[in-house]
Simulated assay, not measured.
Amino acid sequence: MTATLESVRSRSFAFILGSPHGGGNTEALARYAAEGLPSDAGAGWLSLSELPLPARPAGPLPQGPEKVLLDATLDSTDLVLASPLHWYSVSAATKLYLDYWARWSGLPDVAFRERMRGKNLWAVTAYARGDDTDTEPLTGMLRRTADYLGMHWRGALLARAHREGDLEADPAALARAATFFAPPHHP
């Protein structure tokens, strides 16, 4: 029997953590969801607080944290932006990371837009107050970003969690997390 490319191809998830501090509810929610990744999928975790991007690029070519983030972005099949809800959108660090996508699109020999086409974009967000409708600006921005780059928008995993431990007290949020990456996923 000959294996097709699709049957031997594994997926690679890059979890981009956008919280200003580690270990918060958004990261916990993302880690719960990652437990349900397909068995042949790889996962890498990158914290924007540990890989800070300067407001302006340091030079003409990516280096340091910028190079690490560019490589992870391009090498993954699935990008998971795990950002708490800040003023109805992603965190400042996550927004800056997305701003760098425009820079990378203009770099010669990177072929950023072409290499982003066909990738999957996911979001994981915990929010402290309100309800899921408060996340619409965040999810709308990411969906439009995916559309613009020819990526597949796979949806957002949302949970209301204000204090540490709130997720563990919400079995419905944990159940959604457990199956979030399970195929087939249709937003």
Rank of each mutant, 00 (worst) to 15 (best):
R129P: 00
K95E: 06
T135F: 01
A159K: 05
T73H: 02
K95A: 13
L167A: 03
T77C: 03
D109S: 08
D78N: 12
L98Y: 00
P187K: 06
G42F: 09
A159G: 12
R143V: 02
F180N: 03
T139R: 12
Y127T: 03
A58D: 14
G22E: 10
E27R: 01
A41D: 05
Y32Q: 12
G155E: 09
V68Q: 09
Y97H: 07
P52R: 14
G130S: 02
R115D: 04
F180G: 00
F181K: 08
T4I: 00
A102R: 05
A182E: 09
K67H: 12
T2Q: 11
E136P: 00
T125V: 15
A123H: 14
A30N: 04
A58Q: 14
T94D: 02
Y88W: 14
G130M: 03
L48K: 02
F180D: 01
L138S: 05
E136Q: 12
R9E: 13
G22S: 09
S19G: 13
G44M: 08
S12D: 15
S12Y: 10
R176F: 01
M116K: 04
L158T: 10
S105R: 03
A58E: 15
S76Y: 01
Y100S: 03
G118Q: 04
A92Y: 01
K119L: 07
A72P: 03
L17K: 02
P183I: 08
R144H: 12
L107M: 11
E164Q: 10
L37F: 04
P84C: 13
A128V: 02
A178M: 05
A93R: 11
H152M: 06
R31L: 15
A93T: 06
S7C: 02
H21N: 09
G44F: 04
G23Q: 03
L74A: 04
P54V: 13
P171C: 11
E164S: 07
E114L: 04
D75T: 05
A93G: 06
E66T: 04
G18Y: 07
E66I: 05
D109A: 14
L81P: 01
A128T: 02
E164I: 11
E50Y: 04
R176T: 07
A111T: 00
F15P: 03
A30V: 11
T94Q: 03
A159P: 03
A93D: 10
A3P: 07
V68E: 10
L53V: 07
D99K: 00
M151N: 07
G42M: 07
T179G: 09
A93E: 10
T139C: 06
L17A: 06
S10Q: 11
G165C: 08
A14D: 05
E114F: 00
P38L: 01
N120D: 10
K67N: 10
L138V: 01
G36D: 05
D78G: 02
A126F: 00
S7M: 12
G44I: 10
R11T: 14
A28N: 08
E50P: 04
D134I: 00
H21S: 13
A182W: 01
E35R: 14
G24D: 12
H152S: 05
A177F: 06
R103L: 14
T73K: 00
A34Q: 12
F15L: 15
A111D: 15
S39C: 01
A28Q: 15
A58W: 11
G150M: 04
R144A: 15
G23N: 03
R11A: 15
S39P: 14
Y100N: 01
G44D: 09
D99I: 10
L121F: 03
L5E: 14
H152N: 13
Y148H: 13
